[in-house]
Design a protein around this nucleic acid. Structure first.
Lengths: 262, 262
DNA sequence: TAGTGGTCTAGACCACATC
DNA sequence: ATGTGGTCTAGACCACTAT
């Protein structure tokens, strides 16, 4: 539920052979190219629960080793697009059941995924001192300088969520002077602290008078209270966010799985 | 605040070699045994951000191939116990950041993980006909026979959650006559429909009069409304559940990650 | 019995980080 | 320059499912 992310696009190839790196092309691992090819193969012609070609078939068709095939199929399995049954084969998952597992997405991505138009209004952008909660979550000493943003997030122009974010100032120097950034995540990436995981705690609550006014609901209106601590790959806490979502406009959807044995 | 882990002991071995299968022992894949050994190695003597032995080291120490090492380390990465940096090494993740990603757990497991004692009171156990919501989620035609349970779930004796569950009767014949089962998931497993994934939708709401009385809270008290559709490996919907959690006693915790390319 | 996915080996070259 | 993880190959045997 935060700002945007850049992504790569670049799909490729339904030709008979997976090209790992073309000249001038960005190097794409073969297993990744194969995954794309298989995904296309599924979309184009395979019905749910229909079998994919066997792994040994795929080796020959795409001129790759078994391990490369398995990595590609493994990815599709993790994405929930296919399922494997030992001794029987690999089969197309029912589209109704496909839902990629949890990924870290920004508020904008989330809202666009619901076919609405995201926007936000900056209410607060300041340099301040970490309070106890903030210090605990960000592993700072209380009183350390942090950057604080408060934003009213909207979808199709309607208030959806009131969001408060705190970042260690050391990570984003100059942010306050710069003004509201296009994307907080980009700032963090450029600081060498790309967001990698987030721990979230979700509660039900009712809004107070100030929140009610901002979110345009009556006092005591129910809301989802989401607390998030975001970390980079090294486990450093890079962001703390507390968001309040209108219960009538927002629900939280996720897919969970039994433990995978790979 | 978490640290529950729980389970599998059998650390096995500080000997130089990982034993994949002993005679009479259940066959355990080498990569799994190695994962356990590495986890123990980390717990015993490595500080956060300290480097693990290189993959080639581990090959020799444990007399396994590189791929086996990589599968073991891969698992630890997915569990958030270590992180890899290309060209530099594999490092121990900060314990504060370790949090198992989402797994499908039962209410009982969940509550025990919070160090409370779960219990439940059966309010309804009946054979009935699928209504529209139920038919949609379970892919049945409206009016199909389903088994319906309503249970008041408690933690340390205090009401925590009011849960309604519907299952296709064809999957659990005899359940109504049998009485409240020890574990619904076991019933489903024995029916060849082991739960594999679940889609959940979480909303904030306030309780109505009946729910308020059962949960022992005032009317209009906030609550988490969780709707779940559970599926087996083939994508068949095997269970629909709607739960209402007291907001003061329950929060929903999860860890999400950026997309992995591993 | 034949075919499938699950596991494992012993190599190899590449891209990247560190010194 | 050395060592690390990332990718890839070409085999092999096992466990399981179908028939």
């Amino acid at each position: 539920m935060n700002t945007d992310t850049g992504t790569n696009g670049s799909a490729a190839t339904d030709s008979g052979t997976v090209t790992s790196t073309g000249p001038g092309t960005e190097r794409e691992p073969k297993h990744e190219a194969l995954r794309t090819a298989l995904a296309a193969l599924i979309d184009d012609g395979l019905a749910p629960h229909e079998a994919l070609p066997s792994e040994r078939d795929l080796m020959q068709r795409y001129s790759v080793s078994r391990m490369t095939v398995r990595r590609a199929v493994e990815r599709l399995t993790q994405e929930g697009r296919v399922y494997r049954v030992q001794g029987a084969g690999t089969f197309v998952a029912d589209p109704a059941t496909i839902s990629k597992s949890l990924h870290l997405t920004s508020f904008s991505e989330d809202i666009r995924g619901r076919r609405m138009v995201p926007d936000s209004r900056l209410l607060v952008l300041e340099r301040t001192e970490a309070d106890l909660d903030c210090a605990r979550d960000l592993f700072l000493t209380p009183g350390s300088p942090v950057v604080h943003l408060e934003r009213l997030r909207t979808a199709d122009g309607e208030p959806m969520c009131l969001e408060n974010v705190w970042l260690p100032e050391a990570l984003v120097p100059g942010l306050v002077e710069h003004g509201e950034p296009q994307s907080l995540y980009s700032w963090l990436e450029q600081a060498g602290a790309a967001p990698e995981t987030a721990d979230q705690t979700i509660r039900a609550t009712v809004v107070g008078p100030r929140e009610a006014a901002l979110l345009d609901v009556p006092p005591q209106f129910p809301a989802l209270h989401v607390e998030r601590v975001t970390r980079d790959i090294r486990g450093r806490a890079v962001e703390r966010a507390v968001s309040l979502y209108r219960a009538d406009r927002y629900d939280y959807r996720l897919t969970i799985s039994r433990e995978r044995r790979g």
